[in-house]
Each structure stands twice: as C-alpha cells, then as structure tokens.
Design a protein around this nucleic acid. Structure first.
Lengths: 183, 183
DNA sequence: ACAACCATGTAAGTAGTTACATGATTTA
DNA sequence: TAAATCATGTAACTACTTACATGGTTGT
C-alpha cells in the first residue's frame, strides 16, 4: 500500500491539484506505481484527514480546483516510511500461467500474446529511452537526478528483460512447432 | 484474473484435492501466480458451478476431502483462454516509490530495504537453481518440460535482474553518501 | 447557447488478504 | 483422551477498477 507515499513524494516535488497529480503521475512515478484519478482523489482525502497534506482553493485554476501541499507531519511520515522494509515483489504474471497451460494442453496459441507483449515492451522501452535522453544525458547529475535515473534504469531493465524473454519464448515455440511431439 | 485457469492447468497435470492443489501451487505454478487456500477453495466452487471441473469425495483421504478433475468443458475453456491476449505487466514496485522518495527527501534509509530484498532474491534464485538441476538437467527434454523450463527461466531472469538492480542501487547510495550534496 | 473540456467526485463490483471457525482423523 | 494436523471453509476488510455523475469554465 504505497499510493499515499507515492502521492506525498510527488506533492513534495511540487504542490499541485488532484488532476495535475493524476497527469504527472502518468508521466513520472506512475510508470512504477499506477493510479487512477478516482483513487488519487480518495487518497488525497485520507491524507488530508490524517494531517499529512493541506488543501486550499487554487486561485489560478478554474472550478473547484484545489491546491495540495505536504505538511511537516506528512514529510515525517514519508521519512519514516522510506525506512520500512518490505518483501521483494514475487513474479506474478498471467503469461507464465499461459505458458504452463500451453505446456499441459499441447500446441494452442500463446504466440498471439507473446507478440502483443513484445510490441508493448518495445514501445515502453522507446519511451524510457526518450526520457533518458531528455532528462538524464547531462555530464553531471545532481543527487536527486541520479536517484531518479536509477529508477528509470530499473524500468529500462524491466522492459529489456521481458523483450528478451518474449523473443526467446517465440523462438522456442517456433522450434517446437517445426519439430513436433518427440515424447 | 487467471487463478481459475491456473487451477485448471494444475488439475489437468494431475487431479487432486483443494489442499493438495494449494501445496502443489506453492511448489510450482505458485512461484508465478500466488494463491491462498481460501482463494483456491472459493475458486474451485466457481469452477464446479461453471461445469469446468467435477468433484467427488476422495476415498484415500480423510475427512471431507474431495477430488477435483477437469471436465471437457474446462479443457475447452482453457484452450480458449490460452489464445487470449493481455497487456504486458507494468512495472509496479514499492521500492521504486521508496527510491523516488529518497531522491526527494535527501539521505534517509532505503538501504535497509535494498539489503533485505537482495537476500530474498538470492535465496529465491538458489531455490530455482535447485529446481533447475533436479527437473531440467536431462540432455533431452520433452515439449512439456521445455515449456515448463522456459517459465522457470523467466523466474531465474527475474531474480537475477533484481539482484543486480539492488546491488547497483546500494553502490550508488554508498557513493552518494561518501561524496554528499554537490548540487 | 452550446460543445468541449477541466475538475472532482460517487457507486458498484472484483481480486486478494487476514483472521478466524469447524469437523474429521491420526498419533502420542 | 488430548494434541496435532488434515481439510474445508466463512467473514471482514483493503486496494483497485469500471462506469457513471456533476458542476464550472472556455471557446465558438
């Protein structure tokens, strides 16, 4: 449950409204922790009730727009949380279930899924590479930038890793199809 | 939502009871799709209601033990599902949020988490290597075995990848700690 | 005035987790 | 006969998703 802390982090970088948060999320932390605007609004309500953020009607914006800011208690909570220890994410992927099903059933059609994923990983990787070139290509990066870059590198590794896997899986399936059932 | 299909796959490999499924899950498909026994029982109920599996009181076992088997309709459903296409898993990891928080807050204590995860990835990898040596070291593997091995290889890649990342993160943090705040 | 869109929500539902309940069978 | 453990569940809760609702602002 790290959405509240993801929001605190993002608001700490720059105070803004709920919808701003939602759209910035999509371009930044949201690559690593997704959230819909509904979820964000609900969570902002909780954060305010907990005394971790304050909100005020925004002047620049229109309608009911509110500006959220992290309060000292929110910053302390984030500092506390960063030191928490959590178990590693187990691998949990429908594709693995599909492959096991394909193993049990005989030749069916996982390659659909594999090709689809390969495309998605490719374009995600291209996006990350753009961000890398735009934001992290300077010779000297600040401490903050270097850590943000580290997170982006995790994303790059993730996409690269799964692209490789999909390719490997596709070539195994092709080989099995070419020389079927030897057992 | 692939638990029903994970259960169908596992039952197809070998019919068994709910608790057997739960424990086999932990050693096999459960490495890639986790489920508690409560969830499994509930899902088995649904599978039976849908006419995808049948159940009968088990003779060998004790108490209320029931033996579950995949029906033809269940097999057809699994064949249909394998050909579905699903979006690639986005990276979604609390650790990334922690690192972004560390970037925004200044030096705190993510290294706790990193060391903890590194340990877990190491032991998971060791387990996978054992399984690899035990089940997949033969010169010639059947089609089914080769596909199962592919899935295991995904697990090995996953653990290796994240071990590397944790090490990289720890060394960056050490470097930043040694030569602090140049911006 | 009307469409488009900015901004904030409510409502209903699902998957999954955690804690607890219950009965039946071995084993000490 | 009591403890352990096998086996199957119920109940309550949380995070998250999907679909829908509402009102204010800007542009035409």
């Amino acid at each position: 449950m790290s959405l509240p802390h993801a929001l605190l982090t993002s608001l700490l970088e720059r105070p803004c409204s709920g919808l701003d948060l939602a759209s910035r999320f999509e371009r930044s932390i949201g690559h690593f922790w997704q959230a819909s605007h509904q979820q964000i609004y609900k969570e902002l309500g909780r954060l305010e009730a907990a005394g971790w953020v304050s909100s005020a009607p925004a002047e620049g914006g229109r309608g009911r727009k509110r500006l959220y800011q992290v309060l000292p208690a929110g910053r302390r909570e984030l500092e506390r949380w960063v030191q928490d220890v959590q178990d590693a994410n187990p691998l949990r992927d429908e594709l693995m279930v599909r492959l096991r099903a394909e193993a049990a059933l005989g030749p069916t059609g996982v390659s659909n899924d594999l090709r689809h994923r390969l495309d998605q990983h490719r374009s995600k990787l291209a996006l990350y590479r753009e961000i890398e070139a735009r934001d992290f290509s300077a010779a000297e990066l600040s401490r903050e930038r270097r850590l943000q870059y580290l997170v982006l590198q995790a994303g790059i590794m993730h996409e690269t890793h799964w692209m490789t896997f999909c390719e490997q899986a596709l070539s195994l399936l092709a080989e099995l199809h070419a020389a079927p059932a030897e057992d």
